[in-house]
Design a protein around this nucleic acid. Structure first.
Lengths: 299, 299
DNA sequence: CGACTCGATATCATTAGCCATATGGAGTTC
DNA sequence: GAACTCCATATGGCTAATGATATCGAGTCG
């Protein structure tokens, strides 16, 4: 039994009109083929749908039930078309997004809010991990999009889009001679003891910090190192060293530490990029990526 | 866009096999028409369903969504057929049943239980009213089946089926000289004061009680009357009169009253019949009516 | 580079679904 | 009972859906 739209439409019209002649007219056809279509329908269903009493056509209980179901089938079909089109256009769907922990502070909530407003049909699945793991997951198809650290080992099957560049600021202990300044120059710290990242966890930041010092014309005297930011913060708060950190941390006041920006053309840490597979044709991913690039670089 | 079963089946098979050749083989057709069918489907939907990369066919997000929806559409169609057939066979549906209050004591719960077990797909809508009103509702189509009193004004557009015959018993005050008997004869009460129904509420019972006395060879001396059974019970419990009542009431002991059956061929009150419209072809009504007649006459 | 795989395209035959006209037949009305 | 209403039946034409064969073209691999 095949339920074509035409057949369902014919039955529904007949169910409304309760008159073969009028229904046929509304359907722009003659009466006999309508009779036959309905008969085929009844044979196919194995049930009588109409109580044909002379001059008074009415639906049997089965016919009334089928009228309801027929309308549902029609609605379901158009709904399927709608849904598939929306998925194809990326207005509906699932996107698996990976990110490094730093992002969560400020950018991620803002992005999620914007996505929920602009692309309400998207379900975004979040996964936090290290840059290296995220790249691997992205390449293997376990993720669709990832916010990762740059510089990082990005092969050419991935396309990257600049997302957020954070400036480096100085982290000084409260008692430091420059702790009260509005801004300083990096070379003002050439004679200070530094604590820097050793590069195991955040290689990008560790590298950039050293590069910035070299550009400023000195090699930082490293009194200590640490493998994550909280370690750095501990050393600085103890008053033993100064350090360089992403400006993001200024939003989280740490007792005993002053974050002071650099003057003029200060060293940048180009931190976060959004990466996707070059071959990925998923429209939802591209819509999300578009939204991300439009939100890139904002504070 | 028309979703024939064949087309959905073709897409689903292809979605499983991810290979045009193998899918065509499983569908007992050659590969080219399958390609064309899928292309027509994609054009009709206005969306690309397959990612055709050489040697590795995969579904696009839209294709994956459509695969889910296609399966749902197929299931929905077969479910519709099933449902319509069940309604046509009377295994599913709505039946509006009217009944007179007496019935509710014992028969109605039993019937509903049996119906729920034997015809679980039926939704039974209950309505209690007087015999006259029920007959009118039945005829006008507001009810499908009614348990009514007999004798009653049943026109020949209704078909009636005997359902329950209740015997008349004597209701005697506890102190009555026959209150302890196992059974008595109606003429034993010829000199007692009676309280009987005046016929406004339960004309059948009122009439039958008087007919029974006439058959026993006497006219009951009516000291009082009442328009319902509780009125009768009050008079009897007060010790003022005896009365005649349906034996149903023996199940509800009333303080101060003894119900005593009549000996031998005691007078019957043929109380309740199930009535339906003769022209009604509703299979659910007939199934229920069949169940009712099979349960007729049981205690 | 040549064979192979796999999907797309071109062309054609068959069928059956759909609708039209003409007619039949039951029931109602005046 | 004659005209009318209304649905069913009979018959025929047309279109469009369906699938088969043959071929092409891109990509892969030894």
């Amino acid at each position: 039994m095949e339920f074509t739209k035409r057949l369902l439409e014919q039955f529904l019209t007949l169910a409304e009109e309760k008159h073969f002649g009028r229904a046929a007219e509304r359907l722009s056809m003659s009466q006999p083929p309508l009779s036959q279509a309905i008969q085929r329908l009844e044979r196919g269903l194995g049930a009588t749908l109409l109580d044909r009493r002379p001059g008074d056509l009415r639906l049997t209980p089965a016919g009334a039930a089928f009228a309801v179901e027929a309308r549902r089938l029609l609605d379901a079909q158009t709904a399927v078309v709608e849904r598939v089109r929306r998925v194809a256009q990326g207005l509906e769907g699932d996107v698996r997004v990976g990110y490094v922990s730093i992002l969560s502070h400020r950018h991620l909530p803002r992005l999620l809010r914007a996505a929920a407003e602009e692309l309400p049909g998207l379900r975004i699945h979040l996964h936090q991990d290290s840059t290296a793991t995220l790249v691997e997951m992205l390449r293997s198809g376990a993720l669709d999009l990832a916010f990762i650290r740059d510089p990082s080992p990005v092969s050419d099957d991935l396309a990257v889009h600049d997302f957020a560049s954070e400036r480096i600021v100085a982290a000084l202990p409260d008692g430091h001679r420059l702790a009260g300044s509005d801004s300083i120059a990096l070379e003002d710290l050439r004679d200070d003891d530094f604590v820097l990242l050793n590069g195991t966890a955040l290689p990008g930041l560790a590298l950039q910090a050293r590069l910035a010092c070299r550009e400023a014309g000195f090699t930082p005297r490293c009194r200590a190192d640490a493998d994550d930011l909280t370690g750095l913060l501990g050393y600085v708060a103890a008053g033993l060293c100064v350090s360089l950190m992403p400006e993001d941390l200024r939003g989280f006041p740490v007792p005993g530490i002053a974050f002071v920006p650099f003057r003029g053309s200060s060293p940048y840490l180009r931190t976060t990029v959004a990466a996707v597979r070059r071959t990925d044709a998923d429209a939802a991913v591209h819509r999300l990526l578009d939204l991300i690039t439009r939100h890139a670089g904002r504070p």
